[in-house]
Simulated scan of single mutants.
Amino acid sequence: MPPTTHLLYLHGFRSSPRSTKASQMAQRVAKLHPNLHWWCPQLPPSPREAVALVMRGIAGWPRSSMAVVGSSLGGFYATYVTATTYCRAVLLNPAVDPARDLVRHIGDQTLWHDPSEHFHFRPEYIAELRALQVGPLDRPEQVFAVIAKGDEVLDWRDMSDRYPGSRIKLLEGGDHALSDFEAQHLDEVLAFIDPV
């Protein structure tokens, strides 16, 4: 595999490019890999629009030297991206069945780190999520998943079972946010992506 030249980061539900993990990763990439093309877009609430935005944004990227990192719902989107492009992917407590899990979140929502920012999660978004579900990955070895048994939002067994043949780092504790991401996991994530 050639070294990574382009890196996409996809944030989770009710999150943004200003999330802790996205910010930590952006800072580390800027410091250690200034020539790496970094893109962390603000994803719209509509899953269809979110993936359309991402696929337009990476349309010209070299498939053999791009990578994607996705957290939670972003991990679901990242799974779609790697299934489509065969790029390397790192999934951080990835959502496995958001169409099932997000039904109870239909309605007005706020961003985690800025409750003054609102968006509406519409009923039709559930069907959009179903349409983005991909089957078994053709190249599971291209995927590295960091999964916390202590995740208070998603079931670690669902996450582990979703990615047979992939590299999985299963944490005995932890939490959904991977609060120890910078101290315990970021270097390993970057090593898997192998940027220069």
Rank of each mutant, 00 (worst) to 15 (best):
M1S: 13
P3L: 10
T4A: 13
H6N: 09
Y9A: 02
H11G: 00
G12W: 03
R14Q: 01
S15T: 02
S15L: 00
S16M: 01
S16H: 02
P17W: 00
P17K: 00
R18W: 02
R18F: 00
S19V: 02
K21F: 10
M25E: 02
Q27C: 09
V29F: 08
V29H: 06
A30P: 08
A30G: 10
N35D: 14
W38E: 06
P41T: 12
L43N: 10
P44N: 03
P45H: 08
P45R: 05
E49Q: 15
E49C: 14
A50G: 10
V51A: 02
A52R: 14
L53M: 11
L53F: 12
V54M: 03
V54H: 04
M55A: 07
R56Q: 12
R56T: 08
R56N: 12
S64E: 15
V69C: 05
G70K: 01
G70L: 05
S72C: 09
G74A: 05
G74K: 01
G74C: 06
Y80A: 02
V81Y: 03
T82A: 06
T82P: 04
T85K: 10
C87H: 09
R88L: 11
V90M: 11
V90C: 13
L92D: 07
N93L: 06
D97F: 15
D97W: 15
D101S: 15
V103W: 11
I106R: 00
I106F: 04
G107M: 12
D108I: 13
T110Y: 14
L111S: 00
W112D: 11
W112Y: 12
H113E: 12
D114Y: 05
E117H: 09
H118R: 15
H120M: 09
F121P: 01
P123K: 11
P123V: 07
I126W: 08
A127M: 09
L129R: 01
L129T: 04
L132C: 11
V134R: 14
G135F: 08
D138H: 13
F144E: 07
V146Y: 05
K149F: 12
E152D: 14
D155T: 08
W156M: 01
W156E: 08
R157T: 14
S160V: 12
S160Y: 14
D161N: 09
R162D: 04
G165W: 14
S166D: 11
S166T: 09
K169F: 07
L170W: 07
L170R: 06
L171Q: 08
E172D: 15
E172F: 03
E172V: 08
G174H: 10
D175G: 07
A177T: 11
A177V: 11
L178R: 01
S179Q: 10
D180V: 03
D180W: 05
D180G: 02
F181N: 02
E182D: 13
A183P: 14
Q184M: 13
H185N: 06
L186Q: 04
E188D: 13
L190V: 13
F192Q: 05
I193C: 05
I193N: 03
